[in-house]
Amino acid sequence: MSETPWRRSSHSGMDNGNCLEVRDDVPATVPVRDSKRPEGPVVNVPAVAWADFIDHLKRRA
C-alpha cells in the first residue's frame, strides 16, 4: 500500500478508545484495522459492502 495515512471516524474522539481506522486509496476494497493495534491484522472489505454498511449506519443515526 502507498503512504496514504489511515483515517479514523470523526465520531471516535481523540481519547484513543475503541476505534477502527480505514484507508481510501485501495481500489475496490476498504482496508480496516484496529487503531490500538496498527501493526495487527487488516481486514479488506469490498468497497460496495463498506458503502452499504455506512449507509445502513447513517439511516439508524
Rank of each mutant, 00 (worst) to 15 (best):
K36I: 01
R7G: 10
R23S: 04
R33K: 10
A51R: 15
H11K: 12
V42A: 09
F53S: 11
V48K: 15
A51N: 10
A51P: 00
D52F: 03
N16A: 15
D52G: 13
K58Y: 03
G17L: 12
A47P: 08
A61E: 11
T29E: 11
T4H: 14
P41H: 12
T29V: 15
V43D: 02
P38I: 00
P46M: 02
R37M: 01
V26H: 09
C19A: 06
V42I: 15
S12L: 07
T4E: 13
V48H: 14
V32G: 09
W50S: 01
K58F: 04
S12H: 06
F53M: 10
R23I: 02
P27A: 14
V26C: 05
P31C: 04
K58D: 05
P41Y: 09
A61R: 15
C19G: 06
S35K: 02
D24N: 07
M1Q: 11
R7H: 08
D52R: 12
N16Q: 14
L57G: 09
W6R: 11
P46A: 14
D34W: 00
V42P: 05
A28D: 15
P27V: 01
R33S: 07
C19Y: 04
K58C: 05
M14G: 15
V45W: 04
F53R: 08
W50T: 00
N16M: 09
E3D: 15
H56G: 14
P41W: 05
G17E: 11
V45G: 01
M1F: 11
R60F: 09
R59D: 08
R60I: 11
S10M: 08
A51M: 03
D52M: 06
A49E: 13
A51E: 04
V43C: 10
M1G: 13
G17Q: 13
L57M: 11
V43W: 09
D55A: 14
V48Y: 09
K36V: 00
D25V: 01
L57F: 07
D24H: 09
S2L: 12
T4C: 09
G17M: 06
D24F: 09
S9M: 05
P27E: 09
G13Q: 06
L20N: 03
E21V: 06
W50P: 00
N18M: 08
P31L: 01
W6I: 03
G13A: 06
V26Q: 09
W50L: 05
G17P: 05
L57Q: 09
V30H: 01
E3C: 07
V32T: 12
D24A: 11
P41R: 12
V32W: 06
W6P: 01
S35F: 04
K36F: 01
S12W: 02
N18K: 10
I54K: 07
R7Y: 08
G13Y: 05
V45P: 00
A28M: 08
V43M: 13
E39T: 12
P31D: 00
F53K: 02
G40L: 06
V26E: 11
P41D: 12
P41I: 07
E39N: 12
V22I: 15
W50K: 07
P41K: 08
R59M: 10
